[in-house]
C-alpha cells in the first residue's frame, strides 16, 4: 500500500472504528484541539490516514499529528501527545 497524500486522505469518520477499540464508544463527535496550531474540530472532520501502521489522525489545518492507534498482537497502543484537549459532549443533540 502506498502512503496517502493529503489530497487523498480520508476524514475522521473513517477512523472512528479503530478508535472505538480504545474508548469503547464512537468518538466521531468529540471536539479535538490540535496541540500544534490550537484549532479545534470534531473528530469526524479531522484528517485520517488508514492502512498502517495503525490509524492516524492529523489536523486538517496544519497537518500536525493529533493521535494514533496501533494494534499489535498483544497490545493496543494509543498516542495522543499531539492533541491538547478532547472534549466529550454528554448532552443529547438538539440540532
Amino acid at each position: 500500500m502506498t502512503e496517502q497524500s493529503a489530497s487523498n486522505s480520508l476524514d475522521g469518520n473513517a477512523a472512528a472504528g479503530p478508535f472505538t477499540d480504545v474508548f469503547g464508544f464512537d468518538v466521531s463527535t468529540v471536539l479535538v484541539t490540535c496541540g500544534g496550531c490550537r484549532a479545534s474540530a470534531v473528530f469526524a472532520e479531522q484528517r485520517a490516514f488508514l492502512g498502517g501502521p495503525g490509524t492516524v489522525l492529523r489536523c486538517p489545518g496544519c497537518d500536525h499529528l493529533l493521535a494514533r492507534v496501533v494494534q499489535t498482537t498483544d497490545e493496543l497502543w494509543l498516542d495522543m501527545s499531539g492533541s491538547s484537549c478532547w472534549r466529550f459532549p454528554l448532552e443529547a443533540s438538539t440540532a
Partner: peptide, 18 residues
C-alpha cells in the same frame, strides 16, 4: 476554524460497537 456549539454535536456513549 470555528468552534461547533456543544448542542450541535451528538452525545458520546451508547452501546459499545462490538
Amino acid at each position: 476554524m470555528t468552534e461547533t456549539p456543544l448542542r450541535d454535536r451528538g452525545k458520546v456513549g451508547g452501546p459499545r460497537p462490538r
